[in-house]
Design a protein around this nucleic acid. Structure first.
Length: 481
RNA sequence: GGUCUCGUCGUCUAGCGGUCUAGGACUCCUGGUUCUCAUCCAGGCAAUCGCGGGUUCGAAUCCCGCCGAGAUCACCA
């Protein structure tokens, strides 16, 4: 069976986590059908006032980052071009004329102020405002500059939603909705139906906010003689606080902002796909291919899901390690380019790769590199308080510390082979020779080398820093006590 | 207000009449991995399944009512 899905955003700004699932799920469904699946990207830019320059590029960038490629749409073209609604006027007008001919649409000359008056009248009487109760008696020939309205014939509707199940609604909300605006552009209500039909869309996947206007769409399908596509309502993603759906006003960040913050696209896709969907097993980590393979509409949750950044961070950590372990250190290193501290710029790839290899399992995001690795590239500022306030070292006198440092320097200076294994052996010997606990000796050396709140295993840190740097830092600390 | 939808640990969820004294994941807590932080491992806290009726030998699962939350009522999408 042929599966045609689409993501149809309007170019009014960036894509945020609250709405990107309406791109992910259609993508997964289409790809699951393999050769028989088509994913369309359609830009719904019929509101010229809200159009934002560059927004289409932002949308494309987001989809590309997540690896959600489309088969038809901007850039790639396709048999149903154009894919910008603003360029499809003729098509909408053609369908609109059909409706006029069948008596299901009329040109509405009523001035906006009059409509506003009707609205006020209704709210004063506390009754719902329905335009069909105010249908003008005389309607002119439809021509540019006059809005075109649907002529509703309200009746109860029942339909099936792939996520919500069997639904029904009474005639109450069906109304004479605007089909073509005064400016000649179609409304979403009309345009999406025409386009989906023209483009052969089989699954209309969109946010649950369209649920309540579905009867109006159903009426339109009928009047247009169109077969209903499968309807798939995607429940809202809720803001971290409160019960409202996540939107820009709640501080919903753009998807690509997470890329800049060091989130991996694999983690983002994984998290978002599993927010409100699961395959019924206990698996948590999914590759894109696994998602494509396992995805199914009937496992989409019907209630809203709260956005939880903590879990995103967990996914990111999982993916960081997974990429390193399974695709190799270079694969992860390739992602780190923009995230090294300023001080790393003069160092070569080989050195940074070594740093990455001992620090990667401590990263939550790639941008942690910036704060966590600085001492590998620049000598830290000596902060003796860090030594004296350390919980293991505060019991030791300054002369003891000085003596320990000297013994360490001596031991390491004599070490022939500056490798992790032999360094560990030397450290172990030092433990025996000084009679100190690991907590004392190792804390001392670790802090003296890094003056950082934490660092990788001591022998690895020493190995990567190298003999010269390690010894010069230890000496500098010994001198300043 | 009308219409529509949703309701299992704090959060994401499994569950489609018995295997549920409700399973997994995140968070949090404890212990272990020669210092730290993190990873990893082991363990723990945490939902009487919104509430109340019913159907049934048996209900988180089916039915009804209620309550709570949300969405939507634009010449925006």
């Amino acid at each position: 069976m042929k599966i045609v899905t689409r993501f149809a955003p309007s170019p009014t700004g960036y894509i945020h986590i609250g709405n990107v699932r309406s791109a992910i799920y259609p993508y997964l469904l289409a790809r699951q059908a393999g050769e028989n699946g088509i994913m369309i990207l359609r830009i719904e830019d019929t509101d010229r006032a809200r159009h934002v320059e560059g927004a289409t590029e932002l949308i494309e960038d987001t989809l590309e980052w997540l690896g959600l490629n489309w088969d038809e749409g901007p850039i790639v073209g396709g048999p149903h071009r154009p894919y910008f609604q603003s360029e499809r006027q003729e098509i909408y007008h053609r369908w609109a004329r059909k409706l006029i001919e069948s008596g299901r649409a009329y040109a509405d000359p009523t001035p906006p102020e009059q409509i506003e008056a009707y609205r006020k009248e209704c709210s004063a009487k506390k009754i719902p405002f329905l335009y069909r109760n105010f249908r003008p008696k005389d309607t002119p020939e439809w021509q540019p500059g006059i809005p075109l309205r649907f002529k509703a014939e309200p009746r109860p509707y029942t339909w099936h939603d792939e996520v919500m199940g069997d639904l029904s609604a009474g005639p109450e909300i069906q109304d004479d909705i605007i089909l073509i605006k005064r400016d000649g552009y179609p409304t979403y209500n009309f345009a999406h139906i025409v386009d989906d039909a023209e483009m052969g869309v089989t699954h209309v996947m969109r946010g649950a906010e369209y649920l309540s206007s579905t009867p109006n769409y159903l009426a339109l399908y009928d009047a247009l003689g169109l077969e209903r596509p499968k309807l798939v309502s995607l429940p809202h993603i809720l803001a971290p606080q409160g019960n409202k759906k996540l939107g820009k006003r709640d501080g919903a960040k753009s998807v690509t902002e997470y890329r800049d913050d060091g989130i991996l696209s694999e983690a983002m896709l994984n998290y978002l796909a599993c927010l409100g969907w699961n395959d019924g097993t206990e698996q948590e980590i999914y590759t894109k291919d696994e998602l494509i393979q396992r995805f199914s509409l009937d496992h989409i949750q019907s209630s809203g899901a709260r956005y939880d950044e903590t879990k995103l961070l967990w996914y990111n950590g999982q993916w960081l390690r997974r990429i390193y372990d399974e695709q190799g250190p270079e694969a992860l290193y390739a992602r780190t380019t923009r995230f090294w501290p300023e001080s790393a710029s003069s160092y070569d790839d080989a050195y940074k790769l070594k740093v990455l290899s001992i620090i990667y399992d401590r990263l939550k995001t790639l941008s942690d590199l910036r704060v966590m690795t600085d001492y590998f590239f620049a000598d830290p500022v000596i902060d003796l308080d860090m030594l004296t306030n350390n919980k293991f070292l505060k019991k030791l006198s300054e002369s003891t510390i000085e003596e320990l440092l000297k013994q360490t320097i001596q031991k390491l200076t004599d070490l022939k082979d500056w490798q992790a294994d032999s360094l560990q052996q030397a450290l172990n010997e030092l433990l025996l020779e000084t009679g100190r606990k690991p907590a004392e000796l190792f804390s001392l050396i670790r802090i003296a080398l890094s003056f950082a709140p934490f660092s990788p295993a001591l022998n690895l840190t020493l190995e990567v820093l190298g003999r010269d740097t390690s010894l010069s830092r230890l000496n500098a600390v010994a001198r300043s006590i």
